[in-house]
Amino acid sequence: MNIRNYLDSTYLKTANQAGISEVENEKIVMQFVQEAIDGNFKLIMIRPDMVVKAKKIIVEANAVTLVGTVIDFPEGESDVMAKLEEAQRAIEEGADDLDFVCNYKAFKEGDIAIVKKEVLRCTKLGLDNNKTVKWIIEVAALTDKQIIQLSSLIKNVIISNFKEEDYNCVFVKSSTGFYKTEDDLPNGATVRTIIMMLENASPLPIKAAGGVRSYQDAVEMVSLGVKRIGTSGAKAIANGEDTNQEY
């Protein structure tokens, strides 16, 4: 198995979160970009303000690595117009993948119409521009029942409004990797949550993000049926090693 084809190498910390200067943080981002190129990873996932620079490096290297970015990250609480505006900027700046944080808090409060609206409109924007769209549902914030319901909701919106050939371009993704849990509970993908997502989002593909920290973890996720893996330890995983990265 060529695990590199599944890896979305990820660095999403702000300088403040990393406790370093903006210059130092940008240097780390560019190191991740170069690692993704050198490692032939599927994609480099970065914050929106780094897309232009990352794309420039990849184009100059004549590399095939895709550039992904996050939208309304990490809370997902903005209204649909704010999400659309941020996504439009990312598209114009060269992003290939758009990973939207679903408004899972609205979903938990029963505001289903808000979630349906954002999934429909934001997905349409992405697909109209030939982009891959991913919906982050933040499994650690949800009960098992809510994981099942939200995965099904996203699937039903896509099936009802888009063509079958579009399905492979709309993922349901487990986690931001930034959600704070109590008692050190997992805040990302687990086998249990991924199985629930696979069973209820199909035929949409699944991205496992957060908590994949070894080559064995990654292989297990792919064997379950996952099509992408988001990790800040992509280099170690690709080399068959464990990683101590946070997400």
Score class of each variant (00 low, 15 high):
Gln34Arg: 06
Ile58Val: 09
Ala218Asp: 05
Ser214Gly: 04
Ala63Gln: 06
Ile158Asn: 04
Asn16Ala: 13
Val80Cys: 11
Glu109Leu: 10
Gly76Arg: 01
Glu75Thr: 07
Tyr167Phe: 13
Thr190Phe: 07
Ile44Gly: 03
Leu127Cys: 02
Gly68Tyr: 04
Val64Lys: 08
Ala113Thr: 11
Phe100Asn: 06
Ala82Gly: 13
Asn187Arg: 08
Ile20Asn: 09
Glu165Gln: 14
Thr123Ala: 12
Asp184Ser: 08
Val29Met: 06
Leu120Tyr: 08
Asn2Ile: 09
Ile46Trp: 02
Asp49Met: 10
Glu75Ala: 08
Ile229Ala: 08
Leu125Tyr: 10
Lys134His: 14
Met45Asn: 13
Ala18Ser: 06
Ser160Trp: 02
Asn129Phe: 09
Glu164Thr: 15
Leu204Thr: 00
Ile154Gly: 03
Ile206Met: 00
Lys55Trp: 08
Ile71Lys: 03
Ser9His: 09
Leu127Glu: 01
Ser232Trp: 01
Met81Lys: 10
Leu204Ile: 04
Tyr6Ile: 12
Arg89Val: 14
Ala90Cys: 06
Arg192Ala: 15
Ala82Ile: 11
Gln216Gly: 14
Lys105Met: 11
Lys42Leu: 15
Ile114Trp: 03
Gly177Met: 08
Asn129Val: 08
Ser175Pro: 03
Ile112Phe: 12
Asn168Ile: 14
Leu12Ile: 02
Glu93Phe: 15
Lys207Thr: 01
Asn200Met: 12
Lys56Tyr: 12
Met50Ala: 08
Glu199Ile: 08
Val172Phe: 07
Val115Phe: 05
Phe162Asn: 03
Met196Lys: 11
Glu199Leu: 14
Gly76Pro: 06
Trp135Ser: 15
Ile147Asp: 00
Met50Phe: 13
Gly233Arg: 02
Phe32Arg: 00
Leu204Arg: 02
Ser214Trp: 03
Gln88Val: 05
Asn200Arg: 13
Glu118Gln: 14
Lys134Cys: 09
Lys124Trp: 13
Glu92Lys: 15
